[in-house]
Design a protein around this nucleic acid. Structure first.
Lengths: 331, 331
DNA sequence: ACCCCTATTGCACCCGGTAGCAAGCTCGAC
DNA sequence: GTCGAGCTTGCTACCGGGTGCAATAGGGGT
């Protein structure tokens, strides 16, 4: 397996210096048309194209952005990743997808991101403890970080998220108008839950409506199975008369799991016996089999804003955007 | 924003040469314990860690692997990406997720992968024309390519896939035993369809059972909506008596869309009036609302095999693995 | 005290580009 | 024919580390 051709080789073939070769590949560089043609012909036959690694080293920009993800169970990630990669690629940036798990935690990944000189690091809805980002090994020269789709108050780490307060206010208004009065809330993994702030606002807005005490269900993880398990536990432990009449789940995946259990295992009608609401508006929730009422984050706008910050077209600062309630028959 | 510390700076701080610093960070290098300690202490205070970009340039390995994906509508991609990133990271390799779309096609992405010196390129179920990979600009020094989860006969580009022939034979056996005799097949995007070979084998095995003529439905893309649309068109165009009794869809997503339409819009019972089979065994298919009969690819084994090839622990060669039928109530 | 062996350290050169300066060349104006 | 402006081109220095060899130092044996 032969190695790639280098600028020097092309230079020899074209009978010019390597700097002239490089100019031929630098848009806007000062080079005579004749020599550019000569170089391009030589490059063509030698099959040359510039080595971006070397360029990155010299220019100190890699045009690569790291995206941390720790929750692959939520199908919502996929369309967002699609938009994100597409928008980044449109700006000439590639996406390095980093799986945060117990073998490869945030600190590990951040140090790696630092060593690889990524142009930016995006924490896409990952559950991290705030101290982590304060690690003293980060700092000077560390790539700018952004938190996408969750809240974060860390100075210097702007969060781009959906306004949870408005969202929950809209949801509670909607549910209250529909006549529900015994609300429940299913939260996922504890660390992230607080960061999302959904539970907090949910309880608050019910209180303002004069409804005290939101019943809390807890799911181990953010997955349909965990949602199902949590709902099963709750329904088994309560008698039909004493149950909540509407269950808001921290995301759609939990909601779908809960809905399946309510309908199939307990024979409950949705929404007559138990209404269900989710969050994220995943494609599946809209399927006729579920018709899940949900709340859609303005992911495209969020991504656009963040990419603009990464490319420097916009000042990096915290942004909260307004989402949209998607009422369907489940509540 | 100060720049990162370099080996030279650490060297000055520790009173040694930069090569000694580098040795302190090179496992197995010949260095006295005393100087290593000195260096590590200096590195600690200066907050130094090696620049992997520079290292990559010098060693000619980036420890980055590109993964091409062009179909973000299929939720099946997500768990596979999870496993893939995790396995690669366990080997010290990061994953560059490249979104192949009409603004950024295979050729574009391949040239980019070449310029960035990735250690390998994985075409994860993407629809490409074989000629593309024969582009003469690729070749010498180009990172090794692998095709994951689809078939490919390109010399030098090993495919790691599920054995479609065995899979379809198992599926047809199962359906035949269940008594179905009027099979239909819904294919997705034309380019990929042929590569998957599912339609071909499906028709073949029915023929061997003495059943000629598989009714073909075509979906525009691989998405639930496209599957729904295709099923709707077919059901509208046929009278109840003349319809197929089992519909095999090229993947689960199409199947779920088709199932929704059959049940909700045409009031058909599944499987009584129309049985449905998918492929991939996505999590949602197992939900009580669908109970979709499907076929599971041995994705973990496929990934393990591929990663072993990438790391050189195993010879790169085409591999087909046997999957597993997952019978549920939809057929 | 001397010699030799080996662990350790320093060095020149290289990876493949980029930046900015200065020399060389071309061409038009006078 | 001469001169200077401006376009071209080459060169030095540098990005931050890696490789292989040569030089040095320390220790053991005698």
């Amino acid at each position: 397996m032969r190695k790639r051709a280098t600028a020097k080789e092309v230079a020899e073939a074209a009978g010019v210096s390597k700097w002239t070769v490089i100019r031929a590949f630098t848009p806007g560089a000062s080079i005579a048309d004749a020599s550019r043609q000569k170089v391009l012909r030589a490059a063509e036959t030698l099959n040359y194209s510039p080595n971006l690694l070397a360029r990155s080293l010299a220019t100190n920009t890699t045009h690569q952005v790291a995206v941390f993800v720790d929750d692959f169970a939520n199908p919502h990630k996929l369309p967002v990743l699609e938009t994100l990669t597409e928008r980044l690629q449109a700006e000439g940036l590639l996406t390095v997808l980093i799986n945060i798990n117990r073998h490869f935690d945030h600190v590990h990944a951040l140090i790696n991101a630092d060593q690889r000189q990524f142009d930016a690091v995006i924490l896409f809805g990952t559950a991290f403890r705030e101290e982590t980002l304060g690690d003293r090994r980060l700092g000077r020269g560390f790539p700018p970080m952004f938190v996408l789709a969750r809240d974060s108050q860390i100075p210097g780490v702007p969060a781009i998220a959906c306004d949870a307060e408005i969202a929950l206010s809209e949801i509670v208004d909607y549910l209250f108008d529909k006549g529900y009065r015994r609300p429940g809330f299913m939260a996922g993994a504890r660390t992230l839950s607080t960061a999302l702030g959904r539970r907090h606002h949910y309880a608050n807005f019910w209180r303002r409506k004069g409804v005290e005490g939101v019943t809390e269900l807890a799911a181990e993880r953010y997955s349909a199975l965990a949602g199902a398990e949590s709902a099963r536990t709750y329904l088994n432990a309560t008698s039909p008369g004493s149950r909540i009449d509407v269950l808001m789940c921290e995301n759609d995946i939990l909601a779908l799991g809960a809905m399946d259990v309510a309908r199939r295992e307990f024979g409950l009608g949705v929404p007559q016996d138990l209404a269900v609401v989710g969050f994220d508006n995943i494609e599946l929730g809209g399927a006729p089999a579920y018709e899940l009422t949900s709340y859609e984050q303005p992911t495209d706008e969020m991504i656009n804003a963040m990419v603009a910050m990464i490319t420097g077209k916009r000042d990096a600062e915290m942004v909260v955007m307004r989402g949209r309630l998607v009422p369907r028959s489940s509540a």
